[in-house]
């Protein structure tokens, strides 16, 4: 990948903020960082093609749509790890899944359209794997001001 130049960094920092709901939103953002609209769009497109951006668009909150998220963890024996990974990942409700260095070595997020869907999916995974699915639903979310400083 070509290294990011200073303008790319300005672009990356600017486009992590909320895009205006206007007719020409990219023109507004471009003006803020001293670019023209075409140049900004070309750079966003290139950053996306290079994989620097995963996507550009709305961040949806499934919980606000009546759905639910739940962080889950399992203690998976090393020799069964690949098999269990396949069984877990095969569920569409599993949004992402990470191996972590701990007794609880598999951590994944379930995202379902209804709150009842969480236990349904977790129970199904328990039945398929014979392993407990520990559930850590959120009690409270703290506002995060995170931005990647490019």
């Amino acid at each position: 990948m070509t290294p990011l130049d200073d303008i790319d960094r300005d672009v990356l920092n600017a486009i992590q903020d909320d895009l205006p709901l206007s007719h020409r939103p990219f023109a507004e953002v471009a003006a803020r960082i001293g670019l023209d609209e075409q140049e900004l769009l070309a750079r966003i497109t290139r950053l996306k093609d290079q994989g620097v951006l995963t996507r550009f668009g709305p961040f949806f909150d499934a919980a606000a749509m009546g759905g639910a998220f739940c962080l889950c963890a399992m203690a998976v024996p090393e020799d069964a790890f690949e098999m269990v990974t396949e069984l877990v990942n095969a569920h569409d409700e599993v949004a992402h899944n990470y191996q972590r260095a701990h007794v609880l070595n598999m951590w994944f997020v379930l995202a379902t359209e209804t709150p009842e869907g969480i236990d349904r999916a977790a129970d199904a995974i328990e039945a398929e794997t014979g392993l407990a699915v520990r559930r850590f639903p959120k009690l409270q979310e703290f506002f995060v001001g995170f931005r990647v400083a490019a």
Binding site: D17, L21, V52, T54, G57, P58, F59, A150
Partner: peptide, 24 residues
């Protein structure tokens, strides 16, 4: 879209950077 932002269904419209490609 404005209404969905109001109710929190949409948090923001923005880029999702790939931490890995940015060295994180």
């Amino acid at each position: 879209l404005a209404a969905m932002k109001e109710t929190g269904v949409i948090r923001r419209i923005a880029a999702a950077p790939n931490h890995y490609r940015l060295g994180m």
